[in-house]
Simulated assay, not measured.
Amino acid sequence: MKVKVLKKFRDKETKKVFDPKGKDNSVYEGTEERIKEISDKGYVEKPKKQSTKKTTKKEDA
């Protein structure tokens, strides 16, 4: 899962620095649990709820 970085921080798991103004590190990718943890602290955007609906195609009769 990927989310946009809001504030500069160093990830405690990867030791990598993420910066919203950086080219390479302006998007954080991690597990759903880790993203929830750091989004609660305000470092990344809150993950968007993914729709579980399946679209069905209507066939012409």
Results as ranks from 00 to 15, higher is better:
M1Q: 07
K2F: 06
K2R: 09
V3T: 02
K4A: 07
K4L: 06
V5C: 01
L6I: 14
K7N: 10
K7M: 07
F9A: 03
R10I: 14
D11S: 05
K12M: 08
K12V: 14
E13T: 14
K16D: 02
V17R: 00
F18P: 00
D19R: 03
P20Y: 02
P20E: 02
K21V: 04
K21W: 05
G22R: 04
G22A: 15
K23S: 08
D24C: 11
D24G: 15
V27G: 03
Y28F: 06
Y28K: 01
Y28R: 01
G30L: 04
T31W: 04
E32N: 13
R34Q: 08
I35H: 01
I35P: 02
I35F: 02
K36G: 11
K36N: 15
E37P: 08
I38V: 07
K41M: 13
G42T: 09
Y43T: 05
Y43F: 15
Y43V: 05
E45I: 09
K46E: 11
K46A: 14
K48G: 12
K48W: 06
Q50L: 13
S51K: 10
T52H: 11
T52P: 07
K53L: 15
K53A: 15
K54S: 11
K54R: 14
T55I: 14
T56E: 12
T56C: 07
T56D: 08
K58W: 04
A61W: 05
